[in-house]
Design a protein around this nucleic acid. Structure first.
Lengths: 148, 148
DNA sequence: GGCATTTAGTTAGCATTGCTAACTGTTAGC
DNA sequence: GCTAACAGTTAGCAATGCTAACTAAATGCC
């Protein structure tokens, strides 16, 4: 199982990257929570703001969770007035879920906080390192386009 | 609060990086779980194998969680025979927690699976992209040394 | 020596988030 | 119109995070 297949990237860098990503997100979760809402909420709200109203299945798929999980999340956010939902005209089964003004505002604030924290994180970075980050982002984006 | 301080890195790249990191880890969690244990277990076991036996507080700090959370995690892993603990000689309050042979083996297997998945992820990466990854890892490591 | 304080870890109880299985209600197909 | 498929919800479980309150051991001060 640990057959040494041909591998482009050296394992140590990848493993360290993995571990660092975990630590980074752990730190950011704290920032999110200080902003008044937590990871999944922030992420789902982001999708709703950026991609516009969605039905529950789409939203669940976008977030990589199953419908019941998203259903509960939406219900909670609705109770907090962050999203609104209405049944679709053409199909009464479907619900269109959209961010409310309050939700949008909260999302923007959370986003600003996260970016601020991340900005501080990369504050001491050199130009080379920033360029490297952009390269990695491109590569990751491409790689994650297909399922892991 | 969203005062536009001087900022070295462009926000879009950082934000995309954040989002990609979330997606990557979500995918890897599935891999971990297929290997028979989940994120926090894998991570804690990793620390124990790599850094050697630790007391509970050290381990909790290394994982960025509070002692009660780590206490429960250790208890569960102990029940599965993945770690062993004994009280320190010089201080009966402290417990030294170490990976068992079984824990080490499981950790290595999980690690291999994760690396395999990550390796596939970066399979199509160019040499430049790999170099960029290493640069980013160094920068992140440095940045995360101090609290977010 | 003996008692108060600090420190290490645990226990209890809560919230969030993930899942699967089973249910309700709506649409589509025959 | 009846059945099959589909959208979403409800119920119930497990894992992981937390805080508050507890136990037990070490330290410090008289």
């Amino acid at each position: 199982m640990s057959t040494p297949r041909k591998r482009a990237a050296p394992a140590p860098a990848i493993e360290r990257f993995h571990h660092l990503a975990i630590r980074m997100l752990r730190g950011l979760r704290a920032v999110d929570e200080a902003a008044g809402f937590s990871g999944p909420r922030a992420s789902a709200l982001s999708v709703l703001v950026i991609r516009g109203p969605q039905c529950l299945r789409e939203l669940a798929a976008a977030e990589g969770v199953k419908p019941p999980t998203m259903s509960r999340l939406v219900k909670a956010m609705q109770a907090e007035g962050l999203v609104r939902s209405q049944s679709a005209r053409h199909d009464q089964r479907e619900i269109r879920i959209g961010a409310s003004a309050k939700g949008r505002a909260l999302m923007m604030r959370g986003r600003a906080r996260r970016l601020d924290a991340l900005g501080k994180l990369f504050h001491g970075a050199s130009a080379d390192e920033i360029a490297a980050l952009e390269t990695v982002v491109e590569a990751l984006d491409r790689a994650l386009a297909r399922p892991l």
